[in-house]
């Protein structure tokens, strides 16, 4: 008989929602929150909103680009300290 997933209430699910979206819960708690979200129409919108928020936030990686000249600046400073690129 498969292990039953414990049912949790909305308060518990919401309090762990960020941890769930960050995949920072243990497997059992991940399943519990996932089960609650599939069954609860009140909590699912919070998960969807937060997921969209985190996805958009993560895309900041593509928006904040290092100035091209900085790499040369850093390599020059390192060269003064003895760094030389491998041949």
């Amino acid at each position: 008989m498969p292990d039953e997933i414990r049912s949790i209430d909305c308060n518990t699910a919401v309090s762990k929602l960020w941890d769930f979206l960050d995949a920072e819960l243990d497997d059992e708690k991940m399943r519990e929150v996932q089960k609650h979200l599939t069954e609860c129409s009140d909590c699912l919108p919070h998960a969807d909103f937060n997921r969209r928020f985190l996805t958009a936030l993560n895309e900041a990686r593509q928006r904040n680009i290092m100035p091209p000249a900085l790499r040369e600046q850093v390599l020059s400073a390192l060269a003064a300290d003895g760094y030389f690129p491998a041949r």
């Binding site: 919401v14 309090s15 762990k16 929602l17 919108p45 937060n50």
Partner: peptide
């Protein structure tokens, strides 16, 4: 931290 998560959901409910 748990209270922060609950508060965020409450504010999202208002949104």
């Amino acid at each position: 931290a748990d209270a922060e998560a609950i508060a965020a959901a409450r504010e999202h409910r208002a949104m």
